[in-house]
Design a protein around this nucleic acid. Sequence first.
DNA 1: CATGAATGAGGTTTCATTCAT
DNA 2: TATGAATGAAACCTCATTCAT
Lengths: 212, 212, 212, 212
Amino acid sequence: MRTATPHAFQPRKTPVQKRSTVTVEAIAEATIQVLLAVGLDRLTTTRVAERAGVSVGTLYQYYPNKQSLLFAVLEHHLNNVMEKVEAACEGARHKPLAEMIRDMVEAFVDAKMERADISVALYRVSADAGGPALIKRISQRSRNAVEAMLQTATDAELLPDKVTIDMMLAAMAGVMRSLLEAGPSPVTVRKSREQLVLLCQSYMAAATAKRA
Amino acid sequence: MRTATPHAFQPRKTPVQKRSTVTVEAIAEATIQVLLAVGLDRLTTTRVAERAGVSVGTLYQYYPNKQSLLFAVLEHHLNNVMEKVEAACEGARHKPLAEMIRDMVEAFVDAKMERADISVALYRVSADAGGPALIKRISQRSRNAVEAMLQTATDAELLPDKVTIDMMLAAMAGVMRSLLEAGPSPVTVRKSREQLVLLCQSYMAAATAKRA
Amino acid sequence: MRTATPHAFQPRKTPVQKRSTVTVEAIAEATIQVLLAVGLDRLTTTRVAERAGVSVGTLYQYYPNKQSLLFAVLEHHLNNVMEKVEAACEGARHKPLAEMIRDMVEAFVDAKMERADISVALYRVSADAGGPALIKRISQRSRNAVEAMLQTATDAELLPDKVTIDMMLAAMAGVMRSLLEAGPSPVTVRKSREQLVLLCQSYMAAATAKRA
Amino acid sequence: MRTATPHAFQPRKTPVQKRSTVTVEAIAEATIQVLLAVGLDRLTTTRVAERAGVSVGTLYQYYPNKQSLLFAVLEHHLNNVMEKVEAACEGARHKPLAEMIRDMVEAFVDAKMERADISVALYRVSADAGGPALIKRISQRSRNAVEAMLQTATDAELLPDKVTIDMMLAAMAGVMRSLLEAGPSPVTVRKSREQLVLLCQSYMAAATAKRA
DNA sequence: CATGAATGAGGTTTCATTCAT
DNA sequence: TATGAATGAAACCTCATTCAT
């Protein structure tokens, strides 16, 4: 993949007509399908276009380059997870800390597992140049959501600072990745989910206590 | 990068003559240099050979393909980190749990930060096909080292099981990655190091307590 | 030339637009030109594309690999000869055996001599992996044509069986090859043509008589 | 295969010491083995040397280049066949024409079939640049042998001229090639052998008669 | 004489991207 | 807007051959 100038990773035009929207989505969906079917190495723009039932030319009408296509899919996936987490955070307001954490972590794990195959496939995409930046941008949102939630905790004596929250989120992401890449059994998933809850709870407890 | 058959990621021949050994190392070193200088996308075998002061042909005498070259470097790096962690684990035997964890985590963070640039660059390499498998193989070693250490803890009532250790390690890896990819200031590093120690300690404490 | 999987020797796509058809033919023609100009050893896909006035990429749109290109040309040549032979066979129906044979053999020799240079150049191509199979497939056609003709012979008491016909055809091919590779004078060609007719006639006569 | 200058196809030195002779033969034998094992496309000088248990350097002491190695093997094979045919020709002197032909043809077929696999593999070798010349040189010998034999025929009224003999030999070669490349069953071989005898006999009879 | 590490020209093939239709 | 034929830079990798040890 010959990477273009950094600013070029956004979709080219925001479609207004309905037909365009359909096309854009068909292309994004086809990208996932191809990704799962043949892997990132053999994903070509032509193949994606074929699968989407359009010509390559059309593909390039909506995505300025291959990278932007991949990133759009990645972003969509991350946003999807994000929304679930945010929803959980909203729903868990005004609860005790441990419950908050549990709800949030479980929402995260469940969201990721829901499309485990895609999650795994996208790890490789996220490693492409520019990926970390994208990830970072998205993580901001989760931090904000979590932070807002924590401020309403009924039993927290001290609020954890940003570094703490980021650390927890990074730990969650790391555990999740390791889990997904292992291709885990349902049992393993359940156990790991529990343990991850525990990990986050104990850390948050310690972090809020420590300050005191 | 067209990935070959899975078995093809091992170096091709073990050099017997001294001349060869020098060459092999020069190539590996050149790979890192090129990786840091131009990035993975523009790392070509020709460029690596040039930098190493040999011909492409020579490179291919020792590495059957580009992938194996990259993986050799990745493996070397991970082994390096591993050794430091193992050493810390050995040195921390027969101490209280919290101290063990601290020593181990700090060794890990320090080892990673020692060559932060390489660590970051290799994240992309590790995403290549076959990377996760390599990582997994290496992680086994760390789990064993940590497990052996924990068994000698002077104050642990219950030993954490494998899942727990794996979780901790995955969390550590995730945090480290997130940290490294952010290109952190020394201050941030110091703070994060502390926090990561806390995270692991509190989780291990909770996990060992929980069983009881 | 690294030969690919056996099924990969067919042209890649059947062009629909007129522009494409022109391109495909230009490439095939260029292949012959290059073959004659520099020989098989130095025939490269790049050179062929250049000669055809297209880019390499275009070449690979229509031929999945070098081998398929060469085979397409070989097949075309053989088909061309085949058609002449078939026409002769059709035209010689309901004649005495000796005349039939004469017409057929002469058509074969003439067809081969018509593009003697190409014929010779293609012998090397036909030796490539997969060549014999191609030859075999084409030979079926000639056997059928000859067989159909012989059944209408006005004076044949017994029909020769398939083995006999194949033998005659193989002999013809062998003689022709030996002749072409010798780079013969017109006189030699004429003499050899006569003799080959005699060879086939006498063999067929003997073979049909023998059965009786 | 990058072909060298035309004069370079002869073995480099005629070994006088016994050790050398052994080495030379080991290399030749290894060439055949590799040819049969992996095919011409993947036959490399290194592989041959390995199989022969010597280093590439040593191989190049005795054969100036790859081509010469292959041609040495080809020549050896052809000489072997030749000797059998010559012996048959000598043994068939002073017999009637038909018997002569039979003995000779059968010797030829049997000699070829004796190492059918090698015969087939070498067809590709003989197509390499310079091959036809080699073949031609060898064919001279067979023509001479056959000619000498025919002159002693007890019942021949007219001697066939060189063109006639060449034609017969070319036909024989063509039939044999076609037969070998088909990978024939023993039954087919036997039948074809008979038919080839018939073909040659009838042609020679016709050719000698015709002159009259 | 033997070794085998080193050479490096050069071949095949891919695929993101463009633009005339 | 959509199409898809054409582009062509550039990557990977091979292997016959040499020559210092």
